[in-house]
Design a protein around this nucleic acid. Structure first.
Lengths: 144, 144
DNA sequence: GTGGATGCAAAGAATTTGCAACCAA
DNA sequence: TTGGTTGCAAATTCTTTGCATCCAC
């Protein structure tokens, strides 16, 4: 599961951290680069393990992700299976997930047109409206 | 926060428990009746407290909700605030939530037409497709 | 009567925190 | 140099579990 970040992700993580006014440290950079390189939400455990044995403490991963979340760099997702996952928030690519209820594989659905529903929410007086939308089903591989 | 279940909810909880083949006990009945009477998802803590001091153990609430979930009577929701909530699953009334990001008040949005998106998921080979959709915003009361 | 349900307390898992050492700016 | 960050271990919180007792059927 251990992976090294791509040069591109390393550059972008640097840029993002500086842009958010966060000091650039090794754990922060590597965690963010991992999220940039790999699509889909990951558990804290997965992220920690991806960096290789002993690269940094699990508590550090929690702390970094907590800060990223506060700065709007990542968001937490919950797919109903008791595991919290973090995902890089790419404002340029709004999308949703399709989660296989059997094997838990996550794929993306890029198309999203629920502007109509969001405007109904705005009509009720809400401001700064956003949404989460996840699909669940049994993927082709998991069907008998 | 203590409330007593309505007669209607008491009847329906009995019916639902029997229908699912669950023994009818006081805690099960009162927990289910609470979820039937009050709309919106509630945390385990809220449900426990709603039944009054010492009515039943917190562990019992966890156990009951876990069984209800297995039987498809309730579903867990996660709104990104670290709190897991349980909601009665009314198959006859599919709806979504609007959660105020400030005061956390939950209201419902009954209209839901994302059949088009669900069919896109089915086209990808998924079966038993379902979805969750939540809206977040600042409600009128919480705006300056 | 009997198997399943509950209360209580203890265990377990996930996450957070205190503090000294360390590192980025 | 200095304030912010990390590692480590302990603490906290949330949830689950073992077991004796109790209750629904």
């Amino acid at each position: 599961m251990k992976t090294n970040p791509s040069p591109k992700a390393k550059d972008k993580s640097l840029e993002l951290l500086r842009g958010k006014g966060l000091n650039v440290t090794h754990p922060r950079r590597k965690i963010l680069a991992y999220l940039l390189d790999h699509h889909g939400p990951f558990s804290v455990e997965e992220i920690h393990q991806s960096m290789g044995e002993g690269f940094c403490d699990l508590a550090t991963v929690y702390r970094c992700l907590g800060q990223f979340e506060k700065k709007g760099l990542v968001e937490r997702r919950y797919f109903g299976d008791d595991i919290l996952r973090y995902e890089y928030l790419d404002h340029a690519h709004h999308h949703h997930h399709i989660i296989c209820t059997q094997c838990k594989a996550v794929t993306q659905l890029d198309d999203c047109d629920i502007a109509k529903l969001e405007s109904m929410v705005k009509d009720r007086g809400y401001r700064d409206v956003s949404h989460t939308l996840e699909f669940f089903g049994v993927c082709a591989k998991c069907q008998p």
